[in-house]
Design a protein around this nucleic acid. Structure first.
Length: 270
DNA sequence: CATTCGACCTGCTTGC
DNA sequence: TGCAAGCAGGTCGAAT
């Protein structure tokens, strides 16, 4: 489900409920949800206390006494905090039994998400996180421009490339292009330095705004779990009418991803 | 190396 | 109504 703002909202919300608690037992109900060896994961983490939750791009990083593990929610992953007596639901694939009688459960309808044991001291330098580019607020415009400028791929596709910048997903890629009035199919090569600077600035603004909205909308969790789902005002994504010119919004597939844009407002090629 | 394309999964919507 | 195809807020690995 999530792009960076949703993951950040999940991180903040989850922290209120699990910091300082010990994982007394781990039950894996769907083996493939854990990357690498499941027994190793379970054995290593059982008995450790959750000290903090970090985030790198769209990854959550749970910091424990001795180890850490990363969790990527992919399309539909979410966390539930429930009383231990609550029956396991169909799509809950992993349960962390906590020391206070609650359980942290990972739920994922499509089973795309993954959890993996990582080295607490070096996870940012290790795979897979070391592959990620900077988040927009840490991005060096020169470096980003260098990457974008050498590619013929559509700018929208490049925004989704987590090795260039991390955190942007399909929805925000569409929104960012709309805000900048840039045609999402514009080849990276044709995007000017100035436009790249603007692209980074807009990415920052939109993600930051989304985090604020997530923070104000989601104070806790409910039966739907901690999803970070929030109702941000979308300008083009899933829209039919352009809010600026009232013209029809177009939907087309760009490199396999649903892409929405206004053909009138987003004519600019760079 | 950069890029493409299918794979990974389930469920909801759409169209015949 | 029934059923198949298409699509969903993401990433990876194999092939080109």
């Amino acid at each position: 489900m999530p792009e960076l703002p949703e993951v950040e909202t999940v991180r903040r919300t989850l922290k209120n409920f699990i910091i300082g608690k010990e994982i007394t037992e781990i039950r894996v109900h769907y083996d493939k949800i854990v990357s690498g060896n499941t027994d190793t994961f379970v054995t290593a983490l059982t008995g450790q206390t959750i000290l903090d939750i970090d985030r790198v791009g769209k990854y959550l990083v749970f910091i424990l006494d001795q180890d850490a593990f990363i969790s990527h929610l992919r399309m539909e992953g979410k966390y539930n905090i429930v009383d231990a007596s609550k029956p396991l639901s169909k799509h809950e694939h992993l349960t962390f039994v906590l020391s206070d009688g609650t359980e942290l459960r990972y739920q994922d309808t499509r089973k795309f998400g993954r959890l993996a044991l990582v080295n607490k001291e070096s996870y940012r330098q290790d795979l897979p996180l070391c592959k990620l580019g900077p988040e927009p607020w840490d991005a060096d415009p020169k470096a980003i421009y260098a990457r974008i400028h050498q590619s013929n791929l559509p700018i929208k596709t490049l925004l989704l490339d987590q090795t260039i910048m991390t955190g942007i997903g399909n929805i925000y890629a569409n929104e960012i292009c709309f805000t900048l009035k840039i045609n999402p199919t514009t080849p990276g090569k044709r995007v000017s330095k100035k436009r790249v600077v603007e692209l980074i600035a807009v990415s920052k603004e939109i993600l930051a705004q989304a985090i604020v909205q997530g923070g104000t909308t989601i104070h806790s969790f409910d039966a739907n779990g901690i999803t970070g789902l929030f109702q941000m005002q979308l300008q083009v994504h899933l829209q039919k009418v352009c809010p600026v010119c009232n013209g029809a919004v177009i939907k087309k597939m760009v490199r396999g991803r649903g892409t929405y844009y206004c053909p009138t407002c987003q004519k600019k090629k760079g």
